[in-house]
Design a binder for these strands. Structure first.
Length: 132
RNA sequence: CCAGACGGCUGGACGGUCGCUCUCCGGGUCAAACCGGGGGGAGGAAAGUCCGGGCUCCACGGAAAUACGGUGCCGGAUAACGUCCGGCGGGGGCGACCCUAGGGAAAGUGCCACAGAAAGCAAACCGCCCGCGCCUCCUCGGAGCCGCAGGUAAGGGUGAAAGGGUGCGGUAAGAGCGCACCGCGCGACCGGCAACGGAAGCGGCACGGUAAACCCCACCGGGAGCAAGACCAAAUAGGGGCGGCACUGUCCUUCCUUGGAAGGACGAAACGCGUUUCCGCGUCGCCGCCCGGGUCGGUCGCGAGAGGCGUCCGGUAACGGGCGUCCCAGAUGAAUGGCCGUCCAACCCCGCAAGGGGGGGACAGAACCCGGCUUACAGGCCGUCUGGCACC
RNA sequence: GCGCCCUUAGCUCAGUCGGAUAGAGCAGCCGCCUUCUAAGCGGCAGGUCACUGGUUCGAAUCCAGUAGGGCGCG
């Protein structure tokens, strides 16, 4: 079943997700997660935010990196990401040149290593919460 | 054909698939959400934010002045400009053409290091020369050393710059002292709207440079910026009003009908929490409705414009005018794309060549809008012109 | 959107209302001292003064334009 995606927009949310330090750095991207604080959110939805800093390049490069990440998230998250969490995807310099198939793999492994991959069953989020 | 100068245009193409945003139509809904279909969707620089405007708010009696900042040959264009066009002066190039912050230094002040005698008003270090004095030599005419008083700016030397240059005359030596030419200053008059150009004649020549040093003169500038500004408006906590329920004691003040109402102070009680007594903490009415300020959020501002294209007319041109035609991005953690395929260029390699292989698009992303400037940029195309070579 | 500042040796900074050799400390190299090292002493080298133009006789300094970096306000 698919999950509906919402956008993370507040600076405070980004800081909160980064502050939990639950992250995985893949060659093409970095993924951070945290339990969502949005109580009104529905059970089958999640929130994603994107960060591409000036280290990546000028505005054309940053825009392109963010669009590729958006496309990758739109392809993978509805089926494979655990709902009820907030995610932050951070672009790197290699996001621009990395082949798209590898970028998708990066996102899957990042979801797995961060403990938010739905295909690994329901155990993973509990472990993650226990660690936190 | 080679080399070069100037101006303009362009800034990959096609297809598949999955998406985003705005809008229109149809369906759907109380209204939305949503579904289907059609259409629009980054740039010449969107950039830097260096100027000029529109727009909005604030301030202000029209405004002027001071301070501060800016501009700075002349004329024109323009809403305006530090922009553009045309012209002038100066410099560079064989040339097409290019560069040029280019007002005022006799309004005043400052500075011109080192070197040099002297650096801004004339002055005189080594020199040169006349005269006088002393001494020496002597072919008895003079020559030389030293000193004193003067005359000089030719020569030497310093410097970025030393108060016109060259030649002839002249003189004790010299000197615009005189003359010729060149330069310089003033300049009647002529041409030009002007900047400026030409120029008879006059002047023996003075008035160094620096204003991107202070400054003077002329002109321009009120301040802030779409996060401007306007509107709608949640939860929570304050403020105000109305109504209902509850309302224990003492004291004080005020008002009115034995009693009650309003406000204030004090303590207690009550209620809630900590299991209870004790003790501690919290509450001083509670509930409902309405009003106002205001935050998150949302809507407007927000794209028909100093607009694009075509054509005609005026103007050397910048530009202006008439007519016709078109509607051409509107996001807000921020859309305009992700992926795949084919092809055409740059570029690299092999080859004398035809060709073959690799490779993969430059700079760069709207944020209220417009006019410029500046900066970045793989390349491609077009036009005008200059110099040279060859041929007719 | 608006306002301001900085760039000088490998590093941290002087010099910034113009004047000819651009300085200081640390670091580096050489020598002295010491059994050796550190410290100390003496010496040496090291600079397109961010870049490009311009003004001036003369520019790190003044002016203009770029590039990079930093700060502040809403």
């Amino acid at each position: 079943m698919a999950v509906s995606l919402n956008r993370l927009k507040k600076r405070a949310d980004f800081l909160r997700v980064a502050g939990l330090r639950r992250k995985w750095a893949a060659p093409g991207l970095i993924l951070q997660t945290a339990p969502s604080t949005d109580t009104e959110m529905q059970a089958d939805s999640l929130r994603v935010g994107f960060t591409v800093s000036k280290k990546v390049g000028n505005s054309v490069c940053r825009n392109r990196a963010r669009r590729r990440l958006k496309a990758a998230v739109g392809e993978i998250f509805p089926a494979d990401a655990t709902p009820g969490l907030d995610y932050v995807v951070i672009g790197r310099r290699d996001t621009l040149d990395r082949p798209y198939s590898l970028l998708l793999q990066d996102l899957r492994t990042a979801l797995k290593r961060v403990g938010a991959l739905r295909a690994v069953s329901v155990e993973a989020p509990k472990e993650a919460q226990a660690e936190a």
